[in-house]
Structures are given as structure tokens and as C-alpha cells.
Design a protein around this nucleic acid. Structure first.
Length: 790
DNA sequence: CGCACCACAATTTTT
DNA sequence: TTGTGGTGCG
């Protein structure tokens, strides 16, 4: 039974702690203080969930579990109580109870970007102590755990990581060696089948056993492929993305002492984007949090959009039954969007059945109505978007305040054309990543090979690149010999002379093996950046590209040099100088990490990539049946709900203005088709949106013959707010007045230069300015902000 | 062995 | 329409 004094003491202490988090709303504050046990935070889009995460960690470090327990110091007395009530630094020190060391906190996110953001915000809030907090992705957490005990699984601690394209090419090699047809055994689907197996915790033998029971030939074949794939990964000391998690779970489940070590260590486990976890990640989180039982998961079932990757909404829906005493906190106040946007999002998602139920609200006003534009075709659609963006820019917005979101990457083309035509600077997120480019992969393959010569996949990749006269047939023979002798291919190369089959090529093969061995010696005594220089020199890789002297090859040479920057950055930021460390970092690196929110350019990306981001103005394009929702979702209720969640994610990216567009007909993959306007458009209540859809056309009526009605309605189309389609002769932007060809200018970033040429473009000017040796092409309006005459 | 040409297929993808 | 992978020729 609690005494009156204890009660007062606890109350005063809680109030004092709360006073540190007054900037938060009551729900957020609750989530910050509820440190003990299991906690599910249902955080709607834009509800300040990262802020909660950060403050929760800050609370743990400052006050330990004082805000969530009923224990008080034995020597507590009236004087202390008075001090608590009075507040101040000393009182705060007194309030702390069982403070948490930073290295006992594990915060897992899905992207490096999110992890980086958490780290950065923690550091600015808490200073150096923040560095010891594990704020990382599932994958990088696993790498760290595995590096410590990989030998338990038969790997060495310098294991390498295969990224998705490595996995794919390894798989293709296997299919070839097993004489299997890529049509019946589509590599992509095999890969996801193996991923599913690992997600269910099935090893290759287990999978095979299950397949044998139902005597399904195809599954048995896949089982054999899976076994071979695993075998080759293992001999190459390599793990793919799924293996990282699968093996970590194995490690922890099969080694009680290892499990115990990590369970003791992590007193508080936080998992972000919980709706996107798969079963394996669920198991991993349960394992890691199993010691102290303090697990906090943050998620939004309505934003689960990665089912196709094995994410299961089940994890979040059943969290409450898994942890019986768990607390649930809903964050429904949205700080991002206006109420028209929010109401539209709420209305759309309300059509889903399988959800926790949650309604976002805002204290912001209605703002502008949503706009739906029904374009003639994809070209018109892009032009409309371009015009609207220029209009926004004309009103003083930045280019970067605009984002164009589409369902699939193939849709980006028309927008590129339109933006180029109008002189709108843009960036495309997605597509080929820097680290996916052939030349970059080559260099990285060399580096991996130096680290692990037994890596047949990487060896095959670079053995003849740059060309050294080792042909495909030779490589094949080496592969066969290696299989016979049960040795890595590299060992065959070293003894090339002793195989009569290899006589002709023996010399070249030995030379290659020696090259790798020399570089390996070099690596032992040098840093990765020095190794890179040596590598480029010894292989002549860059020299060869430079000699070719085409624009593409120059760009390639540039990319190769760019790797050096990436190495140096890594060494500087992590303080790590090991080659393995760098390679792991690169393997887990993605395009989004490169996304620089400061560069002033319109952003184009898929709706998937947009998750977690926000923009003042958003365009969701291609809102047509069979595109969004896509063909595969139509008639499949589960899939349709996922599409709808994607739509919800896309809508909630917008802060102030949301445009939706559909095209009457569109050419995609060289085919022209006419699709009906997406059902999602009709799920938005009329009072939130203005449209130019002809009355007798649309999803509900399904009426044909839209053409005449369409033409008539088009006149009343909501035009992007003025100036609509600015002609090249449109009034010159103010900035243009003060600059002319021949002017000398001083630019903040590029220094002094001279204007060579000015071309009117989209209500602005494309200016060419010579800075010393370099001629830059810039949009005047943007450039003018960073330069002056002189 | 290297390159050029043709058939073919093509959601989404935090790692 | 675009990119990729396989085949055939020099």
C-alpha cells in the first residue's frame, strides 16, 4: 500500500519529468514516459513519431524509468519532495531513477536515412553520449551481431554481403549449371521463394523435406536450387540480405550464451515502421527484447505497403495478443497536412476492412481543395504538372517543394521530357543506383575478391574485366574443375599449369591470381583508399576507360573515381579503416541515402520511395484503373487494400496542395490504352476536390462515349493557378532584368564568371556562365539567389 | 574472343 | 518504349 507521501513524491517527480517534454501533445508525452514493458504506438502519418522516438530515448538517458515506476529512493524525505516541486537542475538529477546507459538502447529502423536522422537528432539533443546508442537498420544491426560470432555458424568474421543483384546473378549461374530454363524458373520468383522460405525459418534441407512430402516437382527443384545457392554463398563466405537476418536469428536461437549476451545488453528495444516487418524480423525483435521485455514498436497499419516483400501486417495487428500487458497509444493528431488533404486520406483508407481504425485530425484549416486533372494523354498530363510547378515557382515556391509520385518507374519518362522542355530542374530517385552501375560493381567486386578470394561470383565478374584474354569457355572449365575438386575457383587459378585442360590460358590465369594475391598483401598494410589507387593502377581499369574517350566512358571513369570519395567519407565518418567495414557499408547503402533534401529541384519518385517524406505540393499521377490500382490488384481484395494503403501514403505526403492526375488515354510499353479514372479518385468526397471529369464518364457509371462530354468539360478544367501555360514570351522574371549576356558575375559557390548565353525557358532563363575553365548551365532564377553582378 | 544485332518482357523494392 | 540477354559473325 502506498503512503500519502509516496504518492505525492511520485506525482511531483512525474510532473517534473513531464515539464521537460511540454512541447509534445499529451499522447506523445504519454508515449515518451511509458518506458517499461511492451508498448505499441499507432502513429498516423505526420503525427510526429520520430519526435516521440527521440524524446523517448532522451527520457531514458536522463531519467531512466523514473517516469514509469513506483519506486522511490529509500532516503526520500520532505526536503527532497520540496526540491522536486521546485524544479531546476538539481531536482532533475534527483528525479532520475535507474538511468540507462546509451549502449543499452537499440533503435531499429528500416532505412539508413531514418537511422541517420535519429542519430543526428539525438546527437544535437544529447551530445556525444548519443554516439553509443545503436540506431541502425535491421540489416546493419545484424551485421554487427554477426561480426562478433559468425564463426559459430561456420562463417568468418570478414564475411561479405551479396546485394540483390549479386543474388540474382549467382542464381542465374546456378540455373545455368543445373540446366534449368529461366522461363519455367524465373530467377526473380525463385529468389522471392527462397526469401519466403527463410522468412519461415526454413533451411534448404527443411524446405526440401517439406517439398518431398507433397511431392511437388517444381518445389523440389526450387529446394535443390536453394540448397546450391546456400552452399555457394557459404563457400564464398557471403550472406545475402535475407541471410543477414536469417542467420542472426539462427545464431541467437541456437546459441544460448550469445542470446543471453545480447538480451542482457539491450534493456530497451525500439522498432520503427513495425507494420513493415516480416516474420523473421518479428522473431528477431522478440529475441532481442526477450531479456528485459521492454519493447516499443511504432507503426501504422494503414501505411503497410511492402507485403510483396514479406511484410505482414499481422505483426502489428497481433502485437496486443503477443504481449498481454502491453499498452497502446494512438497518435492521431497530424502536424503535416491541411484538413482537405487529411479528410481525403481518411475517406480513401476508410474503404479498407482489415485495419485497426484510426482517424487523423489537424488543427490546421482546410487549406486549398485537392485538384484532379483529367488529361488527354500522358504528354498532356506531364505538361499540366510542369505548368503547375512553374506557376508555383512563379509564386515564390522552391523547385524542391514539389514532388511527383507515380506507381511505377516507367512512368517517369514523360515528366522528364516536359521538365526538360520547360527548364525545370528535377531529380529522379530510384532507377539505377550509383553502386549498381557496372563499372562501380566491378571495382567493388575486385575489393571483395581481395578480401575473400574464395568468392567465385565476384571472381567470375572481374576475371576478364578489363579484358585480359580470358574467355567464357575458359572460365567455364575453371568452374567445372573447381566443382570436381571441391575447391574455390581461385585455387584452380593458382594451380592453372597442373590442369591440361587449361594449358593455353594457364599463363593468363596465373597472372590474374597473382594480381589478386599481390593486392591482398598490399591491403594488409594499407588503408582501403590506398588499396583502391593501387588496384586501379595495377588493373589499368581507369586508364582503359580514359583511352576510349567517349562521353560514356569518361562518365564511367568519373564514377570509378567517385568510389574513392565514398571510401574516404566512410573512413572519416565511421573512423573504421577496414576493407570489410567499408564493403559492408556499401552493400547496405541505397539510393535514398543520397537524397539531398537541400538541392533545389523537383523530385520524381515512386509512391513507395516517398514513404517518410513530405512536400508542400504533391502530384500523384497516373490515377487510372490498371495502373493505380494496378491490373494485379483488380479483383484481388487483399491486393486492392495494399494499393489503397499506398494511395493513403501518397496522399499524406502533401502538406499544402495535392494534385491528382489521370490520362484519358496513355501509351505505356509502346501500347496505347484507355483506362477509366481510378476508383481512388471517386473515394474522395466531392467537397474536398475539384475535378474536370465529364459528368457521364467515370468509375461509377462506367459509361462509354466520353469524348464529346470530355471535350466540353475540358474548358472548365481547373487550370493550375496562374500563370497557366506561360508562353516563352511571358513577362520576364524580375531576376532577368539585372543580368545580361556579357555581365561579369560573382557566384557564391562557383566564384566569378561571365554570362555567355541566355535562353528564355519556361518563364525563366537558361544561362550559360563561364567560371574559369568550366561552363555551367543554370536556371537564372535559382542562380540569381546565389550570385550578384561584379 | 569481342562486338553488333535482334528478340523479348516489363509493378512496387526501405536492405 | 526501354533495357536486357542470347546468338551469330568477323
Amino acid at each position: 500500500m502506498m503512503t500519502a507521501f509516496e504518492k505525492q513524491y511520485l506525482e511531483a517527480r512525474k510532473e517534473l519529468i513531464e515539464s521537460d517534454f511540454l512541447a509534445l501533445n499529451p499522447m506523445q508525452r504519454q508515449a515518451v514516459l511509458a518506458t517499461e514493458g511492451a508498448l505499441l504506438i499507432l502513429a498516423g502519418a505526420g503525427s510526429g513519431k520520430t519526435t516521440v522516438l527521440i524524446n523517448r530515448i532522451a527520457n531514458l538517458l536522463r531519467y531512466g524509468r523514473a517516469g514509469d515506476c513506483e519506486e522511490i529512493p529509500e532516503d526520500a524525505d520532505e526536503a527532497q519532495l520540496a526540491l522536486l516541486r521546485q524544479g531546476g537542475e538539481e531536482a532533475k538529477r534527483l528525479a532520475a531513477w535507474d538511468r540507462v546507459e546509451p549502449w543499452r538502447i537499440l533503435a531499429i529502423t528500416f532505412t539508413n536515412k531514418a537511422a541517420g536522422e535519429i542519430k543526428a537528432r539525438l546527437e544535437s539533443m544529447l551530445g556525444e553520449t548519443a554516439e553509443d546508442i545503436w540506431a541502425c537498420t535491421f540489416h546493419s544491426a545484424c551485421v554487427r551481431i554477426l561480426r562478433r560470432d559468425a564463426e559459430r555458424l561456420g562463417y568468418t568474421d570478414s564475411f561479405t554481403i551479396y546485394d540483390s543483384s549479386d543474388s540474382l546473378s549467382l542464381l542465374k549461374h546456378i540455373l545455368k549449371d543445373m540446366d534449368l530454363d529461366e522461363k519455367t524458373y524465373a530467377p526473380r520468383s525463385i529468389l522471392s521463394e527462397m526469401g519466403r522460405a527463410k522468412d519461415e525459418g526454413l533451411s534448404a534441407p527443411q524446405y526440401l523435406e517439406a517439398a518431398a512430402k507433397i511431392s511437388d516437382l517444381r518445389r523440389r527443384r526450387i529446394g535443390e536450387i536453394y540448397a546450391e545457392y546456400s552452399r555457394r554463398c557459404f563457400t564464398a563466405n557471403a550472406m545475402d540480405f535475407d541471410d543477414l537476418i536469417y542467420n542472426t536469428v539462427r545464431l541467437l536461437e541456437e546459441n544460448a550464451d550469445v542470446l543471453d549476451h545480447w538480451q542482457r545488453r539491450f534493456r530497451y528495444v525500439l522498432i520503427d515502421e513495425y507494420q513493415d516487418t516480416n516474420r523473421l524480423q518479428y522473431r528477431l525483435s522478440s529475441l532481442l527484447a526477450g531479456g528485459w521485455g521492454n519493447i516499443c514498436v511504432v507503426g501504422d497499419d494503414d501505411q503497410s505497403i511492402y507485403k510483396f516483400r514479406g511484410a505482414t501486417i499481422e505483426n502489428i495487428l497481433s502485437f496486443e495478443s503477443q504481449y498481454k500487458n502491453c499498452r497502446v497509444i494512438r497518435l492521431e493528431q497530424n502536424y503535416r497536412s491541411t484538413s482537405h488533404i487529411l479528410d481525403a486520406a481518411n475517406a480513401v483508407i476508410a474503404n479498407n476492412v482489415r485495419r485497426k481504425g484510426k482517424e487523423l485530425w489537424t488543427s490546421k484549416g482546410g487549406g486549398e481543395l485537392l485538384t484532379h486533372y483529367f488529361a488527354d494523354d500522358e504528354r498532356d498530363e506531364a505538361q499540366y504538372v510542369a505548368s503547375a510547378i512553374m506557376a508555383g515557382y512563379g509564386r515564390g515556391a522552391n523547385w524542391r517543394d514539389h514532388a511527383v509520385l507515380y506507381r511505377m518507374n516507367a512512368q517517369s519518362n514523360q515528366f522528364e521530357y516536359a521538365f526538360k522542355r520547360s527548364g525545370i530542374p528535377y531529380r529522379i530517385i530510384g532507377g539505377t543506383r550509383f553502386f549498381d552501375r557496372a563499372e562501380v560493381k566491378d571495382i567493388l567486386a575486385y575489393l571483395s575478391l581481395i578480401s575473400t578470394p574464395a568468392d567465385d561470383l565476384r571472381l567470375t565478374r572481374v576475371i576478364n574485366s578489363p579484358p585480359r584474354g580470358i574467355g567464357a569457355r575458359t572460365v567455364e572449365i575453371v568452374g567445372e574443375l573447381a566443382a570436381q575438386q571441391n575447391l574455390p575457383m581461385f585455387e584452380i587459378l593458382r594451380r592453372a599449369e597442373s590442369f591440361p585442360e587449361l594449358q593455353r590460358a594457364a599463363m593468363k590465369l596465373r597472372l590474374f591470381a597473382n594480381l589478386i594475391l599481390e593486392l591482398r598483401d598490399f591491403a594488409a598494410a594499407h588503408t582501403p583508399d590506398e588499396l583502391l589507387d593501387e588496384l586501379l593502377d595495377k588493373t589499368g581499369y581507369v586508364r582503359l576507360l580514359e583511352e576510349k574517350n567517349t562521353t560514356e566512358d569518361t562518365a564511367r571513369a568519373e564514377n570509378v573515381r567517385e568510389i574513392k570519395t565514398s571510401i574516404l567519407t566512410y573512413m572519416k565518418e565511421s573512423g573504421d579503416v577496414t576493407l570489410e567495414g567499408y564493403l559492408a557499408n556499401v552493400a547496405l547503402y541505397t539510393d535514398m541515402d543520397n537524397y539531398d533534401a537541400d538541392a533545389d529541384a523537383v523530385v520524381l519518385m515512386t509512391m513507395h520511395s516517398a514513404k517518410g517524406l513530405e512536400f508542400p505540393t504533391v502530384f500523384i499521377v497516373g490515377l487510372e484503373e490498371t495502373i493505380f490500382p494496378g491490373t494485379r490488384a483488380i479483383g484481388e481484395p487483399e491486393e486492392m487494400e495494399e494499393e489503397r494503403r499506398l494511395c493513403y501514403v501518397a496522399i499524406t505526403r502533401a502538406k499544402e496542395k495535392l494534385y491528382l492526375t489521370s490520362a484519358h488515354q496513355r501509351m505505356l510499353f509502346g501500347r496505347t490504352t484507355a483506362n477509366r479514372v481510378s476508383r481512388f479518385v471517386f473515394e474522395i468526397p466531392e467537397e474536398h476536390i475539384e475535378k474536370n471529369i465529364p459528368r457521364h464518364y467515370g468509375f461509377e457509371s462506367g459509361a462509354r462515349e466520353p469524348v464529346a462530354a470530355f471535350a466540353a468539360a475540358k474548358k472548365e478544367a481547373p487550370v493550375p493557378r496562374a500563370p497557366a501555360y506561360p508562353a516563352p514570351s511571358a513577362p520576364k522574371p524580375a531576376a532577368a532584368v539585372s543580368f545580361a549576356v556579357g555581365d561579369k558575375v560573382r557566384h557564391k559557390a562557383f566564384g566569378t564568371g561571365e554570362i555567355l548565353k541566355m535562353t528564355p525557358m519556361g518563364g525563366d532563363f537558361l544561362v550559360e556562365i563561364r567560371f574559369g575553365e568550366i561552363v555551367k548551365k543554370l536556371m537564372l532564377r535559382a542562380a540569381a539567389q546565389h550570385m550578384q553582378k561584379g
